[in-house]
């Protein structure tokens, strides 16, 4: 496989960093080389948040994403900040509240998904948006096996919320499968 460079962006408190940790863990469990990192400001909640994962079959050297092959965004502000640094033919998984400029839509494969609203209405827990995203990104990229992703999700969420989060993960994957461009 080629090196995948994933960038997740959103607002502090949305679980964006955890999303990348789960992606990294899933790929790692599949035997891939991974590097996960994040950058953030002083705000614990509400600030711009960016987290990244590099996945490769061979050792990952430079630890930062430079040209994302995949961008996941949950807020307009974070999307706008990072939309212009994408690799060619990148995969974009964004919340459907985000306005994606036409030129970006044409140059890349864009999935506009009801991530935030489904977290509230379907899963009935706004904190599950990051897990829906993880399920969607993994399905869109075909990155990690379903078993590894589920193990990774379960390893990183509070005990007692397994059922809720696995269904959030599955919902994300389903959104990709049923997506009509």
């Amino acid at each position: 496989m080629c090196k995948s460079e994933l960038r997740f962006t959103g607002s502090g408190g949305q679980g964006v960093i955890l999303g990348t940790i789960i992606m990294a863990e899933a790929a790692f469990l599949d035997g891939k080389s991974v590097v996960q990192s994040q950058s953030y400001g002083p705000e614990a909640r509400g600030g711009l948040c960016k987290a990244e994962v590099l996945v490769d079959d061979k050792a990952v050297n430079y630890t930062k994403v430079t040209k994302p092959t995949c961008l996941m965004s949950l807020t307009q502000q974070s999307f706008d900040k990072y939309k212009d640094t994408l690799a060619d033919n990148a995969v974009l998984v964004v919340d459907d509240s985000i306005n994606v400029p036409k030129n970006i839509g044409e140059a890349h494969k864009v999935y506009k998904l009801p991530i935030l609203s489904s977290a509230r209405k379907v899963i009935k827990n706004p904190m599950s948006a990051n897990i829906i995203s993880v399920g969607a990104v993994n399905a869109a990229l075909d990155l990690a096996s379903k078993e590894s992703l589920e193990d990774a999700v379960v390893a990183h969420i509070p005990k007692g919320t397994e059922k809720l989060n696995v269904s959030a993960m599955n919902l994300g994957a389903q959104m990709i499968k049923e997506y009509v461009h």
Partner: peptide
């Protein structure tokens, strides 16, 4: 910070 905050297998 690079090494301290990144995750690797």
């Amino acid at each position: 910070e690079v090494v301290g905050h990144m995750r690797e297998g």
